[in-house]
Design a protein around this nucleic acid. Structure first.
Length: 268
DNA sequence: ATGGTTGAGCGTCAA
């Protein structure tokens, strides 16, 4: 039985914020770092960065301008997985790897779910339709994998499912990220074999946020946050859950992301 | 009601 710490962060440009990863490592000391919105094509990926930080094993999938995911690891990993091209858009929104732990392989998924645009209507807004279709496809894909175990799913899922996952449930009911249809989709996805590891440590009646908009001058004072970033585990891993950290201090780092890093520690 | 901010990369689009 060994302890494993996995961090997830929507870094909103890897090249711009590579120096901030050093702070993340100092604060959380994770074994694995899952990033979203790296915004860097593979041919421009800063290959020397992760090994210099102590993470020699890297999986990444990027494109020009937007999206992009990466996994930085101290633990050897296998990347030759045939994950679907979600919604057949060629987006770089998902990585699947296996961490080669002494106790055996652990399946790890890093997701960046489409934000969905501004209007919560599938007819008027194709981005919203894409978001729901993406989540539906992911749900079906995992549901088909009956008996999935020893797996962890993290990422910016761009949905805040519980009432206390947003600063005002009533005021956000028609705001993309907290609409009932999105919450339904996310709950169905979870039911396809996942357990909410962050809420394992924080009761549902307590507020829990991982994102604060750039548009609020004093994010801490107004505290208009949402929980858009998630860590899910398969049920067999729940007994091993040890601790969780939402690194709120990161929201005050110089030139930081609007998301903060989250980490979960578990025995595996 | 609608604005507010940030990043990529040079047009605006995406968030």
């Amino acid at each position: 039985m060994a302890s494993l710490r996995i961090a997830t962060w929507n870094i909103n440009s890897l090249r711009l914020r590579l120096p901030l990863l050093e702070r993340l490592v100092a604060a959380l000391d994770p074994d694995v770092i899952c990033l979203q919105e790296t915004k860097v094509p593979d041919e421009l990926f800063p290959d020397a960065g992760p090994p210099a930080l102590g993470y020699p094993y890297v999986a990444r999938k990027g494109m020009k301008g937007y999206n992009g995911v990466a996994i930085l690891s101290r633990i050897p990993l296998v990347t030759d997985w045939d994950a679907p091209d979600w919604c057949e858009k060629g987006d770089c929104r998902h990585l699947q790897v296996a961490l080669l732990l002494p106790s055996g392989p652990l399946e790890l998924h890093d997701f960046y779910v489409p934000a969905g645009g501004d209007i919560p209507d599938t007819e008027a807004n194709p981005k919203f339709a894409h978001k729901l279709a993406f989540v539906s496809q992911a749900t079906d894909w995992f549901a088909a994998r009956t008996g999935l175990r020893r797996a962890v799913l993290v990422g910016d899922l761009n949905i805040a499912p519980l009432e206390q996952d947003v600063w005002s449930h009533k005021q956000l009911l028609s705001v993309v990220s907290h609409t009932p249809i999105e919450v339904e989709h996310m709950v169905a996805w979870q039911k396809a074999g996942w357990y909410d590891a962050l809420r394992h440590f924080v009761p549902p009646e307590e507020k829990l946020f991982t994102w604060w908009s750039y548009r609020n001058k004093d994010w801490r004072l107004s505290n208009r946050g949402r929980r858009l970033d998630h860590v899910w585990v398969t049920p067999d891993l729940t007994a091993g859950l040890r601790s969780m950290t939402v690194l709120k201090d990161a929201r005050d780092w110089p030139q930081t992301s609007d998301h903060v890093p989250v980490s979960v520690t578990l025995d595996v």
